[in-house]
């Protein structure tokens, strides 16, 4: 197991390197002169030159990348061009808001998805099954931001039950978490259903039933435990959708998290800040995937690294 963890950890190194190259390149994908765009079209030449100097855009690209990596290894993500604070200081107070939003939504997705998926599988082809699966289909065919707007209209404006925006109290958390977690719940429900059905048809389940094991035990102990294995992989992918989904959800609910910071940074053309946020999001996701692979391995020891 330890050997697997170490090998898997080493595998992430080229990916992380590639991610830094791509994030670094973002600045150079900007059509035209990045310094001019940051300064604005009517900015005096001296100001543009100052920005160019500050971002080190006058040096050859490889030199820029090496300097970028050098700073990165020291925990320096550069400086915001708008606030002149360091990118790390800008991100730090907001990262936990976003992580908590994503985590709570994940918990909702998994709980709702597993319950719905198991019920659907156990009562296959019943009315309940059909209704749950139609709901799931709508769940991931719906734009999350639209769902969020409709929830605000219904629960915050018309019924006045919950606050329409913000983050902090548990009441403020409910609508954003439902908004962000619904699509994931739908996908996990579908995955759990098909995975459960695969397992239920296996010989050992029939054997357990033949032995007279209670149906409840068959479903939860023998069935769900094995059906969970493919579901864990989906949860990993889901985490990616959730992390980036925070951008839309935070925009809809005016939550001061990292996603909204990203949109503000994009609007004010604060490219170093955009780069920093994208990098942090990607690193978190690489780490989450690492954890998913390790738990996948733990659940299913037969899997080979390749």
């Amino acid at each position: 197991m330890l050997q697997f963890v170490v090998r898997r950890l080493i595998q992430t190194i080229p990916v992380v390197l590639g991610v830094t190259i791509l994030v670094f390149s973002l600045m150079h994908l900007i059509p035209g002169d990045p310094a001019q765009i940051i300064a604005g079209e009517v900015a005096p030449a001296a100001q543009v030159e100052a920005i160019r100097e500050r971002l080190g855009l006058n040096d050859p690209v490889p030199v820029q990348y090496i300097r970028y990596m050098g700073n990165l290894l020291q925990g320096d993500l550069g400086q915001s061009v708008r606030s002149s604070r360091s990118v790390v200081d800008e991100i730090q107070p907001r990262i936990w808001v976003t992580m908590r939003l994503a985590l709570y939504s994940m918990i909702l997705s998994v709980m709702l998805g597993l319950v719905a998926g198991v019920i659907s599988a156990v009562r296959r082809y019943s009315l309940t099954d059909s209704m749950l699966m139609v709901a799931a289909l709508f769940g991931f065919s719906m734009p999350a931001f639209w769902l969020g707007l409709m929830l605000i209209k219904l629960f915050a404006i018309d019924l006045a039950l919950l606050p329409p925006s913000g983050w902090g109290t548990w009441q403020q958390g409910i609508l954003p978490v439902i908004t962000l977690g619904t699509a994931g719940a739908a996908i996990i429900a579908r995955m759990t259903r098909s995975s459960m059905l695969d397992v239920i048809n296996q010989d050992y389940i029939r054997t357990a039933r033949a032995k007279g094991v209670k149906e409840r035990v068959v479903i939860y102990k023998h069935g769900l435990k094995n059906a969970l294995i493919p579901v864990v992989t989906v949860i990993g992918i889901e985490m990616g959708m959730l992390l980036s989904g925070t951008v839309l959800t935070e925009t809809v609910f005016a939550i001061n998290g990292m996603g909204r910071l990203a949109i503000d940074a994009i609007r004010s053309r604060d490219f170093p800040l955009v780069q920093g946020i994208v990098l942090i999001f990607a690193l978190i996701f690489v780490f989450v995937n690492f954890l998913v692979d390790v738990s996948y391995r733990y659940l299913n020891k037969r899997i080979d690294l390749n």
Binding site: S244, V278, A282
Partner: peptide, 8 residues
């Protein structure tokens, strides 16, 4: 490419 979460 897959290391970037979702639509990021």
């Amino acid at each position: 490419l897959l290391a970037f979460p979702g639509i990021l």
